[in-house]
């Protein structure tokens, strides 16, 4: 049964200075599935996401306890290089954050600097942009600045940029919260397409979105994992009262 589990969290606690942001989290993320993390603001869902690629340690005075097992190894073990982890676990942020470079160079930036051998950079750029369903819109302006693209295009560029690293997992931190409904729909379609090849973990504050795109859903409240199950179950007959209150909009 373990074969389809890609990341395993065991008794994970996380602290910002004195404040505990996550308490005793145990959960397994499954391969080639879309897992949604939901919950009210400040519940720890984004914190958890950023734990998975060690982005949290860029903030001063943070501390992790417990194990996060990826490829049979705790990613917080002393001999693990966070940079290696981030190559295998890509991330897309809340606000589109392309570099002020050309579209082409945004994509080629990661593979070039991380020393991944690339036979044909042009092919990689094309492939990544096609995967992110952006190729047709930008194929004639690859040497134009990415800053000229619309918000939705920028976000798909950021996804393409992450895909160019050929990650195993794609973390998405509220990727559509800064976008208009049409762009949001495009990104959601894209996620549907991407899960064939990637494991996707997405934080969202939009419950309809979680219901539409995810296979599994985890509900967090005050730093605790309250309920984690198939999305269908969470949204139809949750086991815990708090979950039901949240998804029916009684709080949060």
């Amino acid at each position: 049964m373990d074969a389809d589990i890609i990341i395993r969290l065991k008794n994970v606690n996380f602290f910002y200075g004195e404040n505990q942001a996550l308490t005793n989290i145990n959960m397994n993320f499954r391969k080639n599935k879309v897992t949604a993390l939901i919950g009210p603001s400040g519940c720890g869902k984004s914190t958890l996401l950023r734990l998975l690629n060690r982005m949290n340690e860029l903030i001063d005075a943070t501390r992790v306890e417990g194990d996060i097992i990826f490829e049979d190894k705790n990613i917080y073990a002393p001999d693990v290089d966070p940079v290696e982890i981030r190559r295998k676990i890509g991330m897309v942020f809340q606000k589109p954050n392309p570099f002020p470079k050309t579209i082409y160079n945004n994509i080629s930036y990661g593979p070039k600097l991380t020393g991944v051998p690339v036979d044909d950079m042009n092919a990689l750029v094309e492939q990544s942009l096609k995967q992110a369903v952006l190729w047709d819109e930008v194929k004639d302006i690859l040497n134009k600045s990415a800053m000229n693209l619309s918000g939705g295009q920028q976000q798909r560029l950021c996804i393409a940029r992450a895909l160019a690293m050929k990650p195993d997992i794609l973390l998405m931190d509220e990727p559509t919260s800064a976008l208009d409904p049409i762009s949001t729909a495009k990104i959601e379609e894209l996620i549907e397409e991407l899960k064939k090849n990637y494991t996707i973990i997405i934080v969202t504050h939009n419950m309809q979105q979680a219901a539409r795109i995810s296979d599994e859903t985890a509900f967090f409240y005050l730093g605790n994992l309250i309920e984690y199950s198939k999305t269908e179950k969470i949204f139809t007959k949750p086991d815990v009262k708090q979950t039901e209150d949240y998804i029916t909009g009684r709080f949060g």
Partner: peptide, 12 residues
């Protein structure tokens, strides 16, 4: 966000 984007790609 520029720094985050780059680090998240696994760039040192």
């Amino acid at each position: 966000t520029f720094r985050e984007a780059s680090l998240a790609l696994g760039v040192s």
